[in-house]
Simulated scan of single mutants.
Amino acid sequence: MEVGIVARKGSERAVALAEEVRDAVADTGATVWVDAETATALGEPAAGRAVEALADCDLAVAVGGDGTFLFVARNAGDTPIVGVNLGEVGFLNAVSPDTAVEAVIAEVEAFARDEMAVREAPRLAAEADEWTSVPAANEIVIQSARRGPGAGIDYEIEVNGSRYAGGHADGVLVATPTGSTAYNLSERGPLVHPAVNGLIVNEMAADDGMPPLVVDADATVTVTVEGVEEVVAASDGRNTATLSAPVEVTVERTSPPMRIAGPPSNFFEALGKLS
């Protein structure tokens, strides 16, 4: 078995915990490594590997917050991920620092018995012409190059070929249930329990928009944009592309889904940390 570990960048606590987990996994006889930045923080730069190698592992461990988990997920492909939460809200990271070693070793042992339980969460991808976005665990956002007074886009939204809404707004957001607590929430979108098999369509600061809509997870959402020369499409707020308008952007569920190992998080307990 091979286990890859990534600690939150710039966090001494995360790095120290990653080292503790690494040593415990090594004691089981499994192959274990840390990413290059974590290895450098440990004073062992030669021992680190590129995060892309997570896709070839049997288990990935993210030590930090939900942002660290998403960073790991972007590089892990379909490798199951255990998230260790260091005090953040923790919708994705269900393991506490005090139980991190125990939880990861439990997954290593479950793998050896061929009994690792893995949950799946959907990811989205956007397409336009010959461009395809980086898969998103939280949301795809389509907006103009600038926001605020006098900015925005003229758009029309279709769901499975039927018109849902249109007009002028800062942008359009399509989110997974995982992403319902992220950017979608700040744009007054609904909270969606992770057990719900759906996607959220949310117009961002629309002049005369419709209420946010939850559609089937296999729905095709098409956003046609006019009124600007360029459109910015963003995946989880980090991976952006600038597209020439007018343009038709299609957002759909993509493979592989995000795969989560370890104990499940308590959605309602995590919600309490938002207030």
Rank of each mutant, 00 (worst) to 15 (best):
A60S: 01
L86C: 08
V108H: 00
A100S: 11
D56Q: 11
G48F: 02
V34I: 03
I81E: 03
V32D: 01
A53M: 09
G77I: 00
E102Q: 15
V63N: 13
D35G: 00
D66T: 07
T79Q: 02
T99E: 15
E107H: 08
T31C: 07
D66H: 06
N75W: 12
N85H: 14
D98H: 15
P45G: 04
I81M: 10
W33Q: 02
G77D: 01
E102G: 13
A60P: 00
V84Y: 13
D66W: 12
A100N: 10
G90W: 06
E102V: 11
R49W: 03
A30Q: 04
D78F: 03
A50M: 05
T79W: 06
F69D: 01
I81A: 02
D56I: 05
I105G: 03
T68M: 10
P80Y: 01
D66K: 12
D78R: 13
A46Y: 03
G65T: 04
G48H: 08
E109S: 13
G87Q: 12
L54G: 05
E37T: 08
V101M: 14
A62T: 09
A100E: 11
N93R: 15
E109P: 05
G43E: 05
V104L: 12
A73Q: 14
T31F: 04
E88W: 08
G43H: 10
W33K: 04
F71G: 05
P97S: 02
V82C: 11
G64E: 13
G48A: 13
E109K: 14
N75C: 07
L70K: 09
A46W: 08
E52Y: 00
E107F: 05
P97H: 04
E52R: 10
F71T: 14
V63A: 12
A55Q: 09
V95P: 02
L92W: 11
E37F: 08
D56A: 13
G83Q: 04
A36G: 05
